[in-house]
Simulated assay, not measured.
Amino acid sequence: MCTDGCKERRTGDFCNYYNLAYDSSVLINPNSSYPGSLANDGSKTSCSKTNGPTVTFQVDLKEESIVTGLHILFGELTTKVGSHTLYASNTSNNFKTGTMVYEGQFLPTRINVRAVFRYLTYVPPVHGKSSVLEVCEIGIIGCPPSRYGPVCNKLCPGNCNGPCDLATGSCAFGCLNRWTGDKCEQECSFGQFGKNCSEFCHGCISQMCDHVNGICDNSTACKPGYVYDKYCNTSCSDGLYGSNCLHTCSPFCLHVPCDRRTGECIGGCIRGLHGFNCMQVSINTKKSDDDEVTTWIGIFIGGVLLGILITVVVCFVIRKKLPKKQSKDNVPKKTQSHDQQHYDDVGIENVTSYQDLRKDNLRKDTGANEYDQINATYVNQ
């Protein structure tokens, strides 16, 4: 066991691990005459010290890295009773927004973790109104993003999208655009592009596009079923099909949308029609429909005849039950005389009114002319 510490970029009891913390920035809060840099110099005899009501110790790796373990050596003055917490983050040095990777009533010398982070923050327990922190050495086991192997002496493949696996060197977070494979050593297959070659040039003519950005080699046209643009990756809206989506699906498709490329009614046609776009009349269905119409016509005519028969019977029965009318000779003469007198009175009154109106019209030259014109028109007609 290495009693005094390790050489550059090594950590662990036997100094057999690569130490990411060696080239990192180490801060202790609140600041003191024993700065954080004393905790990552490789020596176990020089320690970083501070105390206060809120104490933190933070390591900035300067870039995201794969970490497999921590090795921390505390001094005798460190507050040990209470909750010890470790936070990791990729985006902020504020530990409150990070992810907790450890919490316990004591902090062991070696902690196994498997995470990718840039910032590591240790928050010690508070005893009474303050906490005392003394860190003599911090080791973060892992490799820089571009290296792998037991002592990080091998280079990761150049097309990895981030750090590679520390043991095998495979690209743990996929490949850069255009590349694929475990170590991102292959070209994308024909018709594919993007990260891990996960995108497809479906709309490009002959599926020819740039392996990196996906722009079609022929950006002036796209396959039927796609809107014309440089990527040809926007499908026709429902109800449209063909080149640049300029055609409308048949209104007789049973289920919409039709095939965006050809316009075929892939879900079938409404009753009575068939064909590629449901524009042909089905003969069998037409005969069936004619038979159905004939049946309904027969039912209608039968209903009308039955209604007429019922009406005749009802009228006959009612006529039989009505009393006979009195003959004209049986009407009292007094009544006849009274009716005749009433008619005469009405006739006289009407004649008088008509004559008065005629006289009034004749008094006016204009009125008389209008009357004559109206009368002449009537005669001509």
Rank of each mutant, 00 (worst) to 15 (best):
V123G: 00
I297K: 09
I318Q: 09
L70Q: 01
Y226K: 00
W296R: 14
T248V: 13
L305Q: 15
G347S: 14
S130D: 12
P150H: 11
P163A: 11
P145W: 02
L246D: 01
S282W: 01
Y371L: 14
S327A: 11
L362N: 07
L322M: 15
V351G: 11
E187K: 12
P30F: 05
C216T: 00
K154M: 11
N361M: 14
V331W: 08
K364D: 11
Q341Y: 10
I270M: 10
N51P: 00
C209W: 00
T352G: 04
S32Q: 06
Y343S: 11
Q355T: 15
I270W: 02
I374L: 15
C253N: 03
F193M: 02
V317Q: 08
T220I: 05
S131V: 05
V116K: 02
R110N: 14
K80E: 05
L309W: 08
N196Y: 02
T335F: 13
D13P: 13
M100P: 03
G162M: 07
L246Q: 02
W179M: 06
L155I: 08
T3A: 15
G158A: 12
V151S: 10
C278Y: 01
C269P: 05
N380W: 06
K324F: 10
S237E: 06
G367Y: 08
F276N: 06
Y241L: 00
F300Q: 10
S189R: 13
N40E: 01
I270V: 14
L73M: 08
S25Q: 12
Y231P: 01
C258S: 09
T68Y: 07
C136M: 11
P108D: 04
S288M: 10
K195C: 03
S282R: 07
H211W: 03
D345T: 13
R9C: 05
T377R: 08
S25A: 10
G128S: 09
I310D: 02
L73S: 05
L155Q: 14
P35C: 04
Q381E: 13
S37F: 04
K129A: 08
R118K: 07
Q373V: 08
K62W: 07
C197A: 10
K325A: 11
